[in-house]
Amino acid sequence: MSWQAARVIETRTETPRVCTLVLDLADWPGHRAGQHVDVRLTAADGYQAERSYSIASAPESSNVELTVERLDDGEVSPYLTQVAGIGDQFEVRGPIGGYFVWESSVARPLALVGGGSGIVPLMAILRHRASSVSSAASDVQPAALLYSARAEVEVIYRREIDELAANDASLRVTYTLTRAQPNGWRGYDRRIDRAMLEQVLMPLGAPPVIYVCGPTAMVESAATLLVSLGHSPDDILTERFGPSGIGEPA
């Protein structure tokens, strides 16, 4: 696996802090839902910085899309979210990872628990599921998404997630906004806790495979709660993001 040039062919603003880069890669072997790439930037003086970013697009997509949250004191994300434009190039290595990966052939219920930009690899899983699973099939496995964000404006992919849920009776989507809620908000209004996980996962019936991704503190708290609810540690797959926002996890 070697570094190759990635050329930006489209950018999309997702939230005030988050944007999606659509990349053209000359030599891409295809990826699996949940995998990431390493991005390497090289400064004029030769200084290099590398960071990992989850792939947001489904394996079925013709391009690789990265959704990146800007960290104000970051070395790579300010460039990717504020500077990189159509035609710009940087180096990419991937796809990477075989642990935090979901295949549509897994014949078990699916639970996704995301915090902040931890939704990104979960979105690749949801998109892969939508394009490979027919919700009309009699053997379709149910899926649930629990997505925690600080405020409504920070919810990434809101419209697409709501459309997926509206068009698929086997998918249930639940949001929790931990810091600010709009008037009339009908989702949860607190950090992910035991009762919330129980309510979200209960309707799945059989024990699900659970993917948890977000800030470190959120992931470790959710994983511990899930074990205390009786889920097998082998059924809980985790991916911790580094800092998310400043000082406080989502």
Partner: peptide, 20 residues
Amino acid sequence: MRNIEELVLDGNAAGGMLAQ
């Protein structure tokens, strides 16, 4: 200020390096 806990990532992020 961030504390060290918030800078923790996990083995997934080491996947590219380990693949070398």
